[in-house]
Computed example of a mutant assay.
Amino acid sequence: MTDAAELQTVAIERDFAHPPHKLWRALTQPHLIREWLMDNDFAPEVGHRFKLRGEWGGVLDCEVLLIEPERSLSYTWDFNSDDPAYALKSVVTFTLTPTETGARLRMEQSGFRPEQKQAIGGAKYGWAQFFDKLDQVAAQ
C-alpha cells in the first residue's frame, strides 16, 4: 500500500480572459461540463455522487467534496480498473482567482501512486486539452 506522503499531484494553472462567474458556470453546469470535459450527471451539492463518462468508454465515480461559489470546487475522481496500473482514487480541485483581465484557474488532481507515470503523463496532457475546450465553452 502506498503511503499518502508518496502520492503525487498533477497541477495545471492557466489565466483565462473570462470573469470567474463564466468559468464557474462552465465548471458546475452539467450541459457545459459535457462540452469541455465529459458526459455527466453532476449537481453542485456537497455529497452528491455522480459519474463522468469518457468518450473512450471509461466511467469515473465521483462525489462532490467542496463548493465555494466562484472560488473553489473539489470532487473525487475514481477510476476502477482490473489493471492496478490504471486504477485511480484521486481528488480534483479547481481554484478560481480573479485577475485584472479575467481569472486564473488552478486544477490539482492528487492521488497518483509513484508507479503511475503513464497515468500522470496522461493527466497532464488531458487536462491541458480540457482547459483548451473550457476556454471555448466559457466564451459562450
Rank of each mutant, 00 (worst) to 15 (best):
R25N: 14
E35A: 14
E55L: 10
M38F: 15
P19N: 01
G121Y: 09
A128L: 04
W36T: 09
Q136V: 15
K22M: 07
E45I: 15
V91H: 03
T76N: 07
V10A: 11
M107F: 06
E63D: 07
K117T: 11
A138P: 08
L134N: 03
E55Q: 14
M107Q: 06
R71Q: 14
E100F: 03
G126H: 06
A103Y: 00
H31G: 01
H48Y: 12
D3S: 08
E115Q: 10
A103N: 00
E13N: 02
R25L: 13
A85L: 10
T28L: 10
A119L: 13
K124V: 13
A103M: 01
F42I: 14
K133F: 14
W56C: 02
F42E: 09
H21T: 08
T101A: 13
W77R: 00
T9D: 11
G111W: 08
A11V: 15
Q129Y: 10
W77T: 04
I12K: 11
Y125V: 05
W127E: 10
T101H: 11
S74T: 15
R53D: 05
Q109P: 04
Q109V: 08
K133P: 07
A138V: 01
E100C: 04
P114S: 04
N80H: 15
G111A: 08
E63H: 05
D135P: 05
W24C: 09
A5G: 00
D41G: 12
E13S: 15
E63K: 10
Q109M: 11
L96T: 03
V64R: 03
L23T: 02
P30W: 11
E6L: 14
F112I: 02
R113N: 01
R106I: 02
W36I: 09
E70F: 03
A138L: 03
K124I: 04
P98H: 05
P69E: 11
A128D: 13
I67Y: 05
H31K: 13
L88P: 01
W36M: 12
P30E: 07
P114R: 06
K124D: 12
W56P: 00
A128E: 14
D41I: 15
E115R: 06
E45Q: 15
V64L: 05
N40I: 13
P44D: 12
L27A: 09
G57I: 06
L27H: 09
D132E: 14
Y86T: 06
S90H: 10
A139N: 13
D135W: 07
R49H: 14
M107C: 09
T99W: 06
E6W: 03
Y125K: 03
R71S: 12
G102R: 03
E45S: 12
P44A: 15
D3Q: 05
W24A: 09
A138D: 01
L134F: 07
V91F: 04
V137G: 07
